[in-house]
């Protein structure tokens, strides 16, 4: 069977800035990293691979050429193959267009074989939507389970535990093919070893680059044309407010504080 792990390269959050004049994102100086939750998604795929005989792990991403690095990271961790979907025609994709692109690449990869699992991080640290996973599943017509805090595969049955509401967990199962998105709690991702890194970087054949023509994409559904949402403006949020001091008797302050916490939804 194949486990396909959909990953994304994201800018390191803390350094992101807006150009105050143009209002555009200043990206050049920003180091790009593998989306942190995707490491957990890769780890899940690798753990399943190690527990069975028949698994091939394939990392896939859509992005510019530099997104190769995210795939090399997945290969360094132990993925068997990697596919970069890269084409100027994919630029400007929203989650709908991205999920279309990923899912037709997955269809090509699977070639009518139904024996597969897709793993994704629950969300990317840049857009933070969590849409692409479930939308890929929808496009492929397979079930999706989001936000897993535990996941295992028994035969072709995927068993997932996830938070339901405060203090409650829910166990869900489904049969393959299926898609699961994972949260931080699902595992501890391994670090690539020096051997893993040299293997990934020195074996060029592990990584393929596919463009719109390779996956026979419908040009109406990819990139800007296939996107239904547009970002109309970006700006830096107001800085944190000055601190406040609560006064009164302990009882009065306690009430004020509790009411403030309730208002802010901490309780």
């Amino acid at each position: 069977m194949k486990i396909i792990t959909c990953i994304k390269q994201v800018p390191a959050n803390s350094t992101i800035k807006i150009d105050q004049v143009t209002g555009h994102l200043v990206r050049e100086a920003t180091p790009a990293i593998l989306n942190p939750l995707d490491k957990h998604s890769i780890e899940l795929a690798l753990e399943i691979k190690e527990s069975r005989e028949d698994v091939e792990v394939i990392a896939i991403t859509m992005g510019p050429d530099q997104a190769r690095l995210a795939l090399l990271e997945a290969l360094s961790m132990g993925a068997d193959k990697a596919i970069l979907l890269s084409d100027i025609k994919f630029a400007g994709s929203d989650t709908l267009a991205t999920s279309y692109t990923l899912s037709i690449a997955i269809k090509k990869l699977m070639n009518d074989d139904d024996n597969y699992l897709i793993t994704c991080g629950a969300q990317a640290s840049d857009g933070e939507t969590g849409h692409v996973g479930p939308q890929v599943a929808e496009e492929l017509g397979i079930p999706s389970i989001t936000g897993a805090s535990r996941a295992s595969l028994d035969g072709d049955v995927l068993l997932v535990t996830r938070g339901k509401q405060a203090g409650k967990l829910e166990q869900i199962k489904t049969r393959l093919p299926a898609l699961v998105t994972v949260t931080k709690g699902v595992n501890k991702p391994r670090l690539p070893t020096l051997h893993g890194i040299t293997h990934a970087f020195d074996e060029g054949a592990l990584l393929s680059v596919w463009n719109a023509a390779t996956i026979d994409a419908d040009e109406e559904k990819i990139g800007m044309a296939g996107s239904k949402t547009k970002v109309s403006k970006m700006y830096t949020p107001e800085p944190k407010k000055e601190n406040i001091t609560l006064t009164g008797s302990p009882k009065e302050i306690a009430s004020k504080l509790a009411s403030m916490l309730k208002e802010k939804n901490y309780i």
Binding site: L96, G133, Q135, E138, E139, K228
Partner: peptide, 23 residues
């Protein structure tokens, strides 16, 4: 944007072929 909403809203938007904005 609860665990439940996050679970079906993206699929619904895909099936409706319309935009969805998160959080």
């Amino acid at each position: 944007a609860t665990p439940q909403g996050r679970d079906y809203a993206p699929r619904l938007s895909k099936r409706l072929n319309t935009g969805l904005t998160a959080d």
